[in-house]
């Protein structure tokens, strides 16, 4: 089963001779329960690709299918709802809401997605425990360490039980030990819950926790985009 399929996506910013090609005819597919690493230097277009996959960005051409839904065919409003319910995104800057506590940053998804508040709260408490944040749950982001904030962001991405998890540079501001911990955690959450996930990283040491690695350079996908080909 294909969890996600990106078909010939191109993303161009600007027009004429000032046009920037962030993505160029990128195609990639992901199987159920597969954890993919997307590797490339900065400026290679990996964040752009992730944004297109998550429905944050509309491609200039091409389509994205997640599960049974063609994301690129949905209206903006429908895409927003899709993101709320079916995609979990961990941003590069974590992007926690500063006036919500760790727990509230997760439970806010109850107001945003279609899940019942009860379900979300249960899952939030469970995740807080699994992520080692149980005694930090009432702290505001400014009171949390970088690693703790990272984990809250992961919790928020998981709390709606989405089909697809997208993670952008999870180890960027963490030391090696903490970074490894976090990626291991991600992998176990993704695998144990039967989800699919893509992790963007430039840290090659982290790819051992993933099933497959895809390289991207200057907007073009190089190796590993076809699951059958292996690495």
């Amino acid at each position: 089963m294909t969890a996600m399929f990106v078909d010939d996506v191109t993303k161009v910013y600007g027009e004429g001779h000032t046009a920037v090609r962030a993505l160029c005819n990128a195609s990639i597919s992901l199987r159920d329960n597969e954890f993919l690493a997307l590797v490339g230097p900065s400026g290679s277009g990996k964040t752009t690709l992730l944004s297109v996959i998550g429905g944050l960005l509309a491609p200039t051409s091409g389509s994205v299918v997640i599960g049974d839904t063609t994301l690129t065919h949905l209206s903006k409003k429908e895409q927003t709802r899709f993101r709320a319910n079916r995609v979990g995104f961990v941003f590069q800057g974590f992007n926690l809401v500063p006036f919500l506590t760790a727990r509230e940053n997760m439970t806010v998804m109850a107001s945003i997605s279609d899940n019942s508040r009860k379900d979300i709260e249960e899952r939030a408490d469970q995740l807080l425990g699994e992520l080692g944040l149980a005694d930090r749950s009432d702290n505001l982001p400014e009171q949390l360490s970088g690693g703790e904030r990272q984990r809250v962001a992961i919790g928020r991405a998981l709390v709606t039980d989405p089909d697809l998890i997208l993670v952008d540079e999870p180890t960027a501001s963490l030391d090696t030990e903490l970074g490894t911990q976090v990626v291991k955690l991600l992998a176990s959450e993704i695998k144990s819950r039967g989800k699919a996930g893509i992790m963007v990283t430039h840290d090659l040491r982290m790819v051992e926790f993933t099933d497959r690695t895809v390289e991207i350079l200057d907007g073009e996908l190089l190796t590993g985009s076809d699951p059958a080909a292996g690495d």
């Binding site: 944050l56 409003k77 927003t80 709802r81 899709f82 993101r83 709320a84 319910n85 995609v87 995104f89 941003f91 992007n95 926690l96 809401v97 500063p98 006036f99 806010v108 998804m109 107001s111 945003i112 997605s113 928020r156």
Partner: peptide
């Protein structure tokens, strides 16, 4: 704005 951007990204509609 930053918070609003995040909230929109994780799926909150403009109406909300």
């Amino acid at each position: 704005l930053r918070s609003f951007t995040t909230l929109r990204a994780i799926g909150a509609g403009t109406g909300y």
